[in-house]
């Protein structure tokens, strides 16, 4: 069963890249902030449709509708911070440095959150697998940059 969740996280990564590229095309027509607004508007409509579909199938508890959690504000602030920080930082550093340091930030923070919040035990195979993924990502970026220069 765990493999399905890993497959879903791979799909999430795939969708993020496709979304980024489609939004880049959209931004050429409506501008960056316009593209951002349309992206979240359409996303909101589809999130509503998904919620409606699963509630028709009886997969959600409708009592929750309208509920508010403080983490939603944190998520929104983080979302806007990422967009603004990325737009500001990308031209200041090389692509490989951006990838490597973002990876370092994501890996260390997710490890810390796993230990503190989820009380997860990180196994040796998890760490070895992660290190191999990071090496693969860095190798691809290094080769890409080498070709560009």
């Amino acid at each position: 069963m765990e493999n399905i969740y890993l497959l879903l996280s791979l799909c999430a990564g795939c969708f993020i890249v496709l979304q980024r590229n489609v939004n880049m095309r959209l931004a050429k027509n409506v501008g960056l902030v316009g593209s951002n607004l349309i992206n979240y508007l359409i996303g909101g409509i589809f999130a509503g449709l998904i919620y409606f579909a699963v509630s028709c199938l009886g997969m959600v508890n409708k009592v929750h509708f309208g509920g508010f959690h403080y983490a939603l504000i944190i998520a929104a602030v983080c979302g806007i911070t990422i967009v603004l920080l990325s737009n500001w930082l990308v031209p200041k550093v090389t692509a490989i440095a951006f990838t490597v340091f973002t990876l370092i930030g994501q890996c260390t923070s997710s490890l810390i959150f796993d230990i503190i919040i989820y009380k997860k035990e990180i196994t040796m195979t998890n760490v070895i697998g992660a290190v191999i993924v990071i090496i693969g990502v860095m190798l691809y970026n290094w080769d890409h940059r080498k070709e560009e220069s």
Partner: peptide
């Protein structure tokens, strides 16, 4: 279900394979 670390690595893997 998997925790933050493995999910993050999965998302990163998916991003690079699609790229």
């Amino acid at each position: 279900n998997l925790g933050a670390f493995i999910t993050t690595m999965g998302v990163i893997g998916g991003q690079f394979l699609t790229s």
